[in-house]
């Protein structure tokens, strides 16, 4: 059986909120290392990969592999009943029909309990090759969100060009063009404001801004976001969570002109 207790419901609420517009039905794969999820959007352009390590829960118990097929719209409805600060416990039997969610208020003696019916989801599982990326950019997640939103006002696509000079986000649209360039930057007092660019070779790739803006819904999960790029491979956008847990998005590039 599965029993996983989160100190704050907020974490799961934010994760589900960040991915629910990209993917609808997904398997939450539970085993003794934690709870993982991998799902592609309908058009096979973007992929979300979530890992909540067992250390992110206390306690965490999962004796055998359990796949919880959950509709994220249903999960969102139930999670709306949880306060951000509530303690959240997920429970399921070994061959479950339902997943049980318990929300406990730390301040009052209120306990709420919900069951969500599970679905059989035959999900295609993709192997993601280990990649040595040509460029890795760490930057404030709010900055990335702002750049994507600002450029989306002009264009559907953004080119991300990484060179020794820095990283340039540029777009061209009907009304004109725009770009934002960031250089490496260290803020001793506020490390969350750092921009770090790790480059082995110059990279230039073009991506759909609609998807990037969608990924940015995860911004509240982490002060920093990591972008990993290599020519002609999907972009990796990573939001690191505590205890080596993470929320990652992959986005296929656009080609041609």
């Amino acid at each position: 059986m599965l029993e996983a207790r989160l100190e704050q419901a907020n974490l799961l609420k934010k994760v589900v909120d960040a991915i629910k517009d990209l993917v609808q039905d997904c398997n939450f794969d539970c085993n003794d290392s934690g709870i993982a999820l991998q799902a592609m959007d309908n058009s096979h352009v973007a992929l979300v990969s979530m890992m909540l390590k067992s250390e992110s829960f206390s306690p965490f118990r999962c004796d055998r592999n359990i796949a919880l097929g959950i509709n994220l719209t249903s999960l969102t409805k139930v999670l709306r009943a949880a306060q951000n600060e509530d303690i959240l416990t997920l429970k399921a039997e070994d061959a479950p029909d339902v997943v049980n969610l318990v929300f406990e208020s730390a301040e009052s003696d209120r306990i709420s309990e919900y069951d969500i019916k599970l679905m059989d989801i035959d999900q295609e599982h993709l192997g993601i090759p280990e990649t040595e990326y040509a460029a890795t950019i760490s930057m404030p997640s709010a900055e990335f969100q702002r750049i994507c939103r600002d450029l989306m006002a002009l264009s559907e696509s953004v080119s991300i060009e990484c060179s020794k000079e820095g990283v340039k986000f540029a777009c061209q649209g009907d009304i004109g063009s725009g770009s934002v360039t960031l250089r490496s930057h260290t803020n001793v007092d506020k490390p969350e404001m750092n921009v770090e660019i790790d480059l082995t070779e110059p990279v230039s790739l073009t991506f759909s801004l609609k998807y990037l803006v969608g990924f940015c819904k995860a911004s509240s999960l982490s002060g920093q976001v990591k972008l990993c790029l290599s020519n002609e491979v999907p972009l990796l956008v990573e939001y690191a969570l505590a205890n080596n847990s993470y929320l990652r998005f992959y986005l296929a590039p656009k080609i041609g002109d």
Partner: peptide, 14 residues
């Protein structure tokens, strides 16, 4: 115009 690629080109099915 740019053509959107899909992930199937890059990631293998398991």
């Amino acid at each position: 115009h740019h053509v959107q690629q899909t992930l199937d080109t890059f990631f293998c099915s398991r």
